Simulated scan of single mutants.
Amino acid sequence: MNNSNAAYAEKKLKPGKATAFFICIGIAAMLWVLQALNTVYNYTITVPVVFKNLPQNKKPLAEIPNVLKVDIKASGLKLLLVLANKPFKTIEVDFNTLKSVNKMQNYILSSGSINFKGSFKFETQIKHISPDTLYFSEKNGYQKNVPVKVPLYIKCALGYGAGKPVITPAFVTIWGDTADINRIDTIYTQPVNLVNVNKNYNSDLVIIKPNSNISTSETKVVTSIEVAKLIEHTITLPITVINGQNFKQVNIFPSKVKVKFTAIQNAFAIADTVLFKASIDPEKTNANNKCYVYLSTVPGNVNILSIVPKEVELLIIKN
């Protein structure tokens, strides 16, 4: 009886074949993960980049890149931590910090002059950067400064409004063949289409070259648009007579109008009232001796809702 109980207890304590198999698989997987995390890998990462302080009076021989391909060498663990930071933060590269050769015609991109840690969040061994050199030549042809404009369509959410886009820089230098440059008075960015907007917009926009023979001092501009809740305002304006020199006297009834409009929050001050001007033209009086009131000057950051009254009566004394 005792022998039977001992055999049963021994059988109960001994793990089954399936359990032992899965334990071995688990141990093997853990060992594989540990080995993978400690193995050193070579890996290529694409990082967004923006350049500033481009060389003056020089023309890039190729398009200034907006991404760099970076070959790094790191352990599996560090590589995993680096890739966890995707999408990578845009790196700003200052030409003033880059090493130049060949009479400042070629600029070398190196890990010592570019802050990759700010994007990767970890120190890494940089093996190679592509491209590793930016090539320039002396500018040829005519050059001039032109304004930058953004082809913009924006529709705000109900109750919100947008201010005028702020573009930085507002002007860029272009150069190329004299005939081409003379035909250009404005440079445009990529178009922007915004719908149902209820917060500020800020983005880097690529400048679109009119043709491949034109070079620009900047490849991108920063565009900011303030978006805020709309506030309704009402002001009273005196009516000004335009083209009244042909009449001895023009009397207006009533002599003032109320203008209702909306403006984005904090974008309109009482002092801006002087930017409004309500006018009539007695030369356009209708058969009932009435004349429509219109706004001859309006600030650029408001949306007119109504003018009350829309028309006024005139008593005209001719010369």
Rank of each mutant, 00 (worst) to 15 (best):
D132M: 04
G141D: 11
K121S: 12
N115G: 04
F116Q: 03
K144P: 07
K144I: 05
Q143G: 08
E138F: 10
E123W: 07
Y135Q: 14
G118Q: 13
N140G: 15
K121V: 07
G118C: 00
D132G: 15
I129V: 13
Y135W: 01
L134V: 04
I129M: 12
S137H: 00
K139T: 11
I126A: 07
I114N: 00
K139N: 13
Y142T: 09
K117H: 06
D132K: 13
Y142K: 14
N140V: 10
Y135M: 12
G118D: 10
K117D: 05
T133L: 11
F116G: 01
F116N: 03
D132V: 00
H128V: 00
K144D: 11
G118V: 05
I126K: 06
K121G: 01
N115M: 05
Q143N: 14
F116W: 09
D132E: 12
F136T: 04
K127R: 10
Q143V: 00
K117W: 03
S130A: 15
E138D: 15
T124K: 01
K139H: 08
S137M: 02
G118W: 02
K144G: 10
I129H: 04
T124A: 07
G118H: 06
N140E: 15
E138G: 11
E123V: 09
D132I: 02
L134K: 07
F122A: 04
S119Y: 02
S119I: 01
F122I: 03
K121D: 11
I114H: 03
H128Y: 08
F136L: 11
K121C: 02
G141V: 06
E123G: 08
Y142I: 08
T133C: 04
D132T: 00
T124R: 01
N140L: 06
F120A: 02
E138Y: 15
D132F: 04
F116E: 02
N115E: 08
K144V: 11
T133N: 11
L134Y: 04
K144T: 13
E123C: 06
K117M: 13
T124D: 00
Y135T: 12
P131L: 10
K127T: 10
Y135I: 08
S130D: 15
F136A: 06
Y142C: 01
Y142E: 09
Q143M: 03
I129F: 10
K127N: 12
K121N: 14
P131D: 14
K139R: 15
K117Q: 15
I126E: 06
Q125T: 15
F120Q: 02
K127H: 00
I126R: 07
T133Y: 10
I126P: 06
G141I: 12
E123K: 12
K127I: 13
K139D: 12
K144M: 12
N140Q: 14
L134G: 06
I114F: 08
I114A: 09
K139A: 05
K117T: 11
S137K: 14
F116A: 05
